[in-house]
Design a protein around this nucleic acid. Sequence first.
RNA 1: CGGGGCGUGGCGCAGUCUGGUAGCGCGCCUGCCUUGGGAGCAGGAAGUCGGAGGUUCGAAUCCUCUCGCCCCGACCA
Length: 574
Amino acid sequence: MRFSQLLLPTLKEDPAEAETISHKLLLRGGFIRKLTAGVYSYLPLGLATIRKVEQIVRAEMSRAGAQEVLLPMVQPADLWRESGRWEKYGPELLRFKDRHGRESCLGPTHEEVITDLARMNIHSYRSLPLNLYQIQTKFRDEIRPRFGLMRGREFIMKDGYSFDADEAGADATYRKMYEAYQQIFTRCGIAFRAVEADTGAIGGSFSHEFMVLAATGEDLVVICQHCEYAANLERATARPEKAANHDTPQPSSQVATPGQKTVQEVGKFLHIPAEFLVKTMIYLADGQPVAVLMRGDHEVQPVKLRNLLGVLEVVLADDQEIASLTGAPAGYLGPVGLKIPLVIDAVVAQMVNFVTGANEVDQHLLNVNPGRDFTPQHQGDIRMVNEDDLCPHCGGKLAITRGIEVGHIFKLGTEYSQALSATFLDQHGQKRPFIMGCYGIGISRTVAAAIEQNHDRDGMIFPMPIAPFQVILLSLTPKDPKTRVEAERLYHQLQEHGIEVLLDDRDERPGSKFKDADLVGIPIRLMVGKRFKNEGLLEIRTRTDGQVSAAAPVAALAMIREMVESALRSPLKN
RNA sequence: CGGGGCGUGGCGCAGUCUGGUAGCGCGCCUGCCUUGGGAGCAGGAAGUCGGAGGUUCGAAUCCUCUCGCCCCGACCA
């Protein structure tokens, strides 16, 4: 491609609308342009990068045995009613009516459509397993789209769905996908971590998020500094700090704590450390009140609470609701005598003789004990891990870091196949629902994440495998016939060798060409200029480290071929 | 949805408080000149000041409504 003919509107200044690095650079580099909030056009360089990621995904999905399809974006409401998600999905699902008044939606994801496809066409265990994927534009009406390609409303996603006849097969498919994802992100040249997103109840871990570690990430990730353990903060667990307290339960008593409301205030007032206090919080779980007991210095992890209770939504009650449910204001709540269901964190269940509110203004209770003074209805790990906690696997130190979720794999089980009656006949002629899995990759987000991770003051720095071009060839003195002809010759020769090259043939001064070349992050810069005119030498500069080497044309070509090939060589086994 | 901010040539901004001929830098076009890190000179095109209504002799500026965009938040007793 010739720069002079390419739609590549680079900007000298940061656009006012962009805050994060990838957003600024994508706009400045002429990769994308915004149409409206969270909706972008991909210009040639942006699309080239997207395509690179897509091709890696296609190759690895194909190698893992998945087949590509393309599913409809417009979907009928009835299908979503069947799965129950027409009601559950919320305002993120963009709904509309067509000219006949039929209710429809834009697909934010495709479980319903794919399950329908399977139930209509797969009837026998002999057709299983089946693994299908597509690369498609999705629409989710996000509350707050932001950061350019990082969280758009419209975005490009690879989503895959698998159908297996039995659990063992489904687990094997899951493992295959896990490995394919490792391979994909490794090949994209970005540093990532596979993170447990769902452990626990069933035993194994059946959901992983693939996170690009970057300071601008929207998710918090807990990683162990010694072993491979990594988990989303929503799911992360910690090793219990110490053995249960074996003190003998003491008789409970009430104590006046005038004006002392927070854990800190009460602890200070009574000279008792926060870890001997238990705070009581009133939540509405799908509208039903529950009281949640948490150690004073711990915090509730709402997702864990939601899962423990098996509800869709938990919200904190407001002051008025608290008063009417407990008869006491926030700050003086406790489990003793409460009429609403009690949820107790696993840590609190082990505690003896702790302090709680008395459900009376300016009063707290000492030496409260579970079982004796109150009986919890629910018990489980509902606390948020913090940085002082220890790894549940190896006891190493945990760290909390930010990550960008670029992939997510999930074992669905029979949730959708049952809802939609998607069944097959097994060896014994028995009707059984498909065991499903789903596997997503945010293609456009992966590009943003790669930039967040790889950039410097001058612009983007693309890893070779996803760079829009492999080489940018600068014709620095285009008015000089000798260099111009050589630039043309190199341009064609590189192309003949299968190298993706962008020729900057513009009538611009060298400085502008250098700036643009740096900005768009093409890994190798080949320069033909005065040095060629005088000494017959070309210069090669690598974007990563700025190293410059000079060589005669033949040697330069060989060098470039070697650089490109070695950068593309798969770092993993084949 | 709550809070904050911003809409002025393609881009980045000043002008708004205190109403009186719409400005600057970059970019764009023409010519000259220049060519190794976003050159210089000369000339030029380009703006319904987001939109509607109002106040006024007069509105980018004041008032009302409205649309769009950006940021923060949407949990800790």
